[in-house]
Design a binder for these strands. Structure first.
Length: 507
RNA sequence: GGUACUUUGGCCGAGUGGCUAGGCGCCGGUCUGCAAAACCGUUUACGGCGGUUCGAAUCCGCCAAGUACCUCCA
């Protein structure tokens, strides 16, 4: 299903006429919308924090995946050659305090008596499956933290060599206080760490860490800790901020264009990453930091810690107390795209049902658009649609407005379909082209009409039944006509009478 | 406590100084044997108080309510 896009990547040697100079994105670092200018056009490097694979993917995972999928698609549309790296975190996230920390993956493994990598494999596949259903394009590279231990050890060494880290009983910690003397630790999240340093000075007597704000770059493994690697300092595992520094650098270089992730990662994760890169490489590695906002439920963040999350599978099956029904992956995608990525979006079954109906209407209009016939001339104006959509995307990926433009033109499509307006051949082609571009290629919405009933005899049989009904109707034999309709409806078919015939949809 | 942010019509959700966002729902209509579906149309809101301005949802101040981060989280 993503073949078109794959091919497009290799056939865009001639950049489209799109006005790249007007693409603006919001940079968390400067808190402003900034014009997007790549470091090495036409190449663009983007890195996005992926999932920690120790649980089923939930609605919260869908948001950054979809947000940055849109960015990935739009950058490609603008003619850039994009390398999109999204990592899989399969080691290193500490469960509690650093001191009694335990690797999340390892903990789950012991509980379930499985090999850690078995867990990783299982949830990675589940994540991939969900992303595919959501029509999220696979990133260019999807590196695993566990596959980049060497790179992370090297990175720790660089920071040690630069004097911004210290070793303590087999573990290595980042010296935040020292770093903050020369750089600003907290510049991304707008924090002034000095006060924190003052207030925590006395609490650190018995800890290996000099300051509570210091964070682990390498952690010595306790005996029961089963995920462990050899390093110059101890048998242990890398600190949980390090993988992004190491893998981002490895695949995108010491400086690259875009780094994305959820807003909740801004502090401390991304802050630490900035510090690590500055300390280890002497560079401010990332030009544009982008953060998607959270999905809330009843006004509260949906998250693992609050236990109020709904897994994607539960959405797809409807198997959750808060869900009135199952919702398709495209509905979830559309729901997310109907809000701007920097706003919170409040989940409710009611809101999802509204999205579902809107999407269905839009997609049916899209099908209708393909079948529209052109007239002599246009009685409507569609020439500015492409520009309107483009301007809107250029304004920090404002997908809800793009969708509103499509809905405006859905009305036009229906009016033409009803014969109340006309459209010229060239205008029709333009309309079809813009809808394909934005609906399919950029927003990534696809029709969900199942091909499972892809059986000619089946279609003909239903048509036959409905033709019999049509004849009955002509004879005003309402009993037969209603019997056919009612029984097909009971089987889950949708029967629609039209002016001179019928339309139907399989269950 | 510190730091950000949010508050828009029945619901969701755009919108940073003046021109109807959009979706869903409701209501009205077209179509129809009936129904459903579909389609068309309608629905004028911006937490409170004060200020700036010819003009504010949009800028400023105060107040109120709520959320997020500061600990793992997308």
């Amino acid at each position: 299903m993503e073949n078109n896009t794959e091919k497009a990547e290799f056939t865009h040697s001639t950049p489209p006429s799109r006005d790249r100079e007007t693409f603006y994105i919001y940079n968390t670092l400067t808190r402003k919308k900034e014009q997007f200018i790549p470091l090495h056009a036409p190449n663009v490097g983007m890195y996005v924090c992926g999932p920690t694979v120790y649980g089923d993917p939930h609605l919260g995972h869908a948001r950054p995946a979809i947000t940055f999928d849109i960015l990935f698609r739009y950058l490609k549309h603008l003619g850039y050659k994009v390398r999109y790296v999204r990592n899989i975190t399969d080691v290193g996230h500490l469960e509690n305090d650093a001191d009694e920390g335990e690797d999340k993956i390892a903990k789950k493994a012991r509980l379930e008596q499985l090999e850690p990598m078995e867990i990783v494999q299982y949830y990675t596949l589940r994540y991939h499956k969900a992303m595919e259903l959501l029509n999220v394009l696979p990133p260019s590279i999807e590196p695993h933290a566990s596959g980049h231990i060497m790179e992370q050890i090297d990175f720790v060494q660089k920071i040690l060599d630069a004097g911004y880290a210290y070793e303590s009983e087999g573990s290595v910690y980042f010296d935040v206080e020292k770093y903050n003397k020369n750089h600003h630790y907290g510049k991304l999240s707008g924090r002034n760490i000095n006060e924190l340093l003052e207030t925590t000075r006395e609490l650190d007597g018995q800890s290996e860490k000099h300051r509570s704000v210091d964070f682990a770059l390498w952690k010595k493994a306790s005996p029961e800790h089963i995920m462990r690697w050899k390093s110059p300092w101890s048998m242990g595992f890398p600190g949980w901020h390090l993988e992004c520094s190491a893998m981002g650098t490895k695949y995108l270089g010491e400086e690259f264009d875009i780094h994305g992730g959820g807003m909740d990662l801004m502090f401390p994760h991304h802050e630490c990453e900035i510090a690590q890169n500055q300390a280890g490489l002497g560079k401010n590695s990332v030009k544009y930091w982008m953060h998607n906002n959270m999905i809330t439920i009843g006004g509260q963040k949906m998250g693992k810690s609050l236990g109020n999350f709904i897994t994607l599978e539960q959405f797809f099956t409807g198997n959750h107390p808060l869900l009135t029904k199952a919702f398709s992956p495209m509905t979830i995608r559309f729901f997310i795209l109907q809000a701007h990525y920097r706003s919170t979006v409040d989940f409710s079954s009611e809101a999802l049902e509204a999205s579902e109906k809107g999407l269905e209407r839009l997609m049916e209009g899209y099908v209708r658009l393909q079948k529209l016939s052109a007239g002599e001339k246009s009685s409507i104006e569609i020439s500015d649609l492409r520009k309107k959509c483009e301007d809107t995307m250029n304004d920090d990926l404002n997908t809800p407005i793009v969708i509103s433009h499509l809905f405006d033109n859905l009305r036009v499509i229906n009016l033409i379909h009803d014969g109340k307006e006309t459209i010229s051949k060239s205008d029709l082609e333009e309309l079809q082209s813009v809808f394909k571009l934005y609906l399919e290629d950029i927003l990534g919405l696809q029709s969900e009409i199942q091909d499972s009933t892809n059986n000619e005899a089946f279609y003909k049989a239903i048509d036959l039944l409905l033709n019999i009904r049509l004849e009955a109707k002509k004879k005003k034999d309402w009993a037969t006509s209603d019997k056919i309709r009612n029984e097909l409806t009971a089987l889950g078919f949708e029967i629609k009478d039209t002016k001179d015939g019928f339309e139907w949809k399989a269950p």
